[in-house]
């Protein structure tokens, strides 16, 4: 099921990139897709971690929310940069990722890194080590607003998984 989804996604990607629909290019594309999917299948990476299909419906809303967060924090980091006194207070901290799946934790860690002002520097189990450029950014993460949002995003997968099982 996931394999078929991966093949369809790759086919759409090929069609979008080429823009030329000649028989030769189509057959080359088909060969490439078959090779890629066979390789991914043999590497055992076609699972809920490698191809998280369930995310796709909830993803746009989450990305929109994340983009708003990015704009807010990028603006505050830009203000720091342009401030002549450079009022930074770099802070290292540890936060817990409340997600249940590996894909959920990866989403949370990458969301932290994507937001300017905070970077995930290490993952051990479900403890994330985070470097923040101002201590206020670390405080916000410790309060866990983003953690809850990612968990909610991931929760939509967890329920669909149960329904399937």
């Amino acid at each position: 099921m996931r394999t078929i989804f991966l093949a369809i996604a790759l086919a759409l990607f090929w069609l979008a990139l080429s823009g030329h629909y000649t028989p030769f290019l189509m057959s080359v594309g088909a060969v490439c897709i078959i090779l890629t999917v066979a390789l991914a299948y043999r590497m055992n990476i076609v699972d809920e971690e490698g191809v998280p299909v369930e995310l796709i419906l909830a993803a746009p809303a989450y990305w929109f929310w994340l983009y708003i967060e990015i704009v807010k924090s990028a603006w505050s980091v830009t203000r720091l940069i342009l401030d002549p006194r450079l009022p930074i207070s770099p802070t290292f901290t540890r936060v817990r990722a409340g997600q249940k799946t590996a894909a959920g934790i990866a989403t949370y860690a990458n969301s932290i890194t994507l937001t300017p002002g905070t970077i995930t520097t290490g993952v051990e189990g479900d403890i994330l080590e985070v470097h923040a450029i101002v201590s206020g950014g670390a405080d916000d993460l410790e309060q866990g607003g983003m953690d809850r949002r990612v968990s909610r995003f991931e929760g939509s997968i967890a329920t669909t998984n149960k329904e399937k099982a």
């Binding site: 990015i70 704009v71 990028a74 603006w75 980091v77 830009t78 720091l80 940069i81 342009l82 450079l86 930074i88 770099p90 890194t113 994507l114 937001t115 300017p116 002002g117 905070t118 970077i119 520097t121 470097h131 450029i133």
Partner: peptide, 28 residues
Amino acid sequence: FLVAGALGMLRMPDVYTRMHAASVIDTL
């Protein structure tokens, strides 16, 4: 924001803080 982020990479004191400036370029 591109220019501001690049300026930040020049101004910040160490490699970790520079990464925050670089992520302004990469995202916003």
